[in-house]
């Protein structure tokens, strides 16, 4: 994935100097292993800070709503789908955007690599093709990139950008025959009590920091329902009633919109698999309406349109 770095710099330099865009949104190299920082380039002399590797899992579509300038943005498959969602929801104009499409082989999961380091602290990580070399005090290990993909990337079926102005590399082969929902089916098969316990345990570590919400491109409401104070809908404590209310309601707001980009899980500081909720809703929308969010730019999402033939098995 590192090979995109030079292409991104070249494109940014060209677009800025030809005044095609005012700014470029990409990543710059992180200060700690497995992290990069979303970065706004405003002038050509900043272009060389742009960087790309397998730690660019934060969804850059999150930085687009309310922008008034002409902006170029680096977009993986999922980011591009979220750009489509933004376009459908009128959050940004297509003619403001210059999309640098990044055909993607998946981002890596920092948490799993950390777990396998068993408490040893990585001080340096360098990606080289299919390998990630990690070193720290008195150790060096090599991780296979493919083995440590983020769990959403491992089941991704839209690695190539669905909308773009130029591609940073040749399209990659899409993964075929992927079963996206074994975990959802496992939860569906639980008894009601079992499932309730599962949800409570899943959410127990939540500290209500809202990193999941804020890393999500879909969460652009001017005031989130948890921040409403007149009336206050949701309690602010870390009691399971309050945390579950937050996570359930948030998940429902994602139905038919979530692209499973995995930013929420990546951002969570306490390692909660929040995608367990959104994936269930993704599955429902797919089964009911055959719809995948953000894949077709001119197709209205099923939950904001009505067709007389829409299935209604949930009305009893």
């Amino acid at each position: 994935m590192r090979e995109y770095t030079e292409r991104i710099r070249e494109a940014a330099k060209r677009l800025l100097s030809e005044q095609r865009v005012d700014t470029v949104i990409g990543f710059r190299r992180g200060t700690v292993p497995f992290m990069n920082e979303p970065f706004l380039v405003k002038s050509v002399d900043q272009v060389d800070q742009l960087y790309w590797d397998s730690n660019c899992g934060i969804n850059l579509a999150n930085y687009l709503p309310k922008r008034t300038d002409r902006v170029a943005v680096v977009a993986k498959g999922c980011d591009s789908r979220n750009i489509v969602v933004h376009l459908l929801e009128n959050q940004i104009n297509r003619d403001q955007l210059y999309i640098l499409g990044a055909p993607c082989r998946g981002m890596v999961d920092k948490r799993r690599m950390m777990a396998d380091l068993k408490g040893k602290e990585p001080l340096h990580a360098e990606e080289n093709g299919k390998e990630i070399k990690v070193s720290g005090r008195g150790f060096q290990v090599t991780f296979d990139r493919q083995t440590y993909l983020q769990s959403n990337c491992a089941i991704c079926t839209h690695r190539n950008p669905v909308v773009y102005d130029e591609l940073l590399g040749d399209p990659v082969e899409e993964q075929q025959g992927v079963d996206r929902y074994p975990d959802v089916r496992r939860i569906e098969a639980m008894s009601v009590d079992e499932r309730w316990r599962y949800f409570q345990e899943l959410i127990a570590p939540c500290i209500r920091c809202y990193a999941c919400r804020n890393a999500c491109p879909l969460c652009y409401c001017p005031t989130c329902f948890v921040d409403e104070s007149r009336p206050q809908w949701v309690g602010k404590t870390i009691d399971p009633t309050d945390t579950l209310t937050f996570h359930f309601l948030r998940a429902y707001h994602m139905a038919g919109r979530c692209t499973d980009c995995g930013s929420c899980e990546r951002a969570c500081p306490v390692g909660i698999e929040v995608r367990k909720f959104t994936k269930k809703l993704e599955k429902e929308v797919k089964e009911l309406y055959g719809y995948e969010a953000g894949v077709i730019p001119d197709q209205r999402p099923p939950l904001d349109t009505f067709k007389p033939g829409d299935p209604e098995p949930f009305i009893k």
Partner: peptide, 15 residues
């Protein structure tokens, strides 16, 4: 420049 990337979550303050 410092603020651009920030998503305004509470991770830093809560930790």
């Amino acid at each position: 420049e410092v603020q651009f990337a920030c998503i305004n979550c509470g991770t830093c303050t809560f930790l």
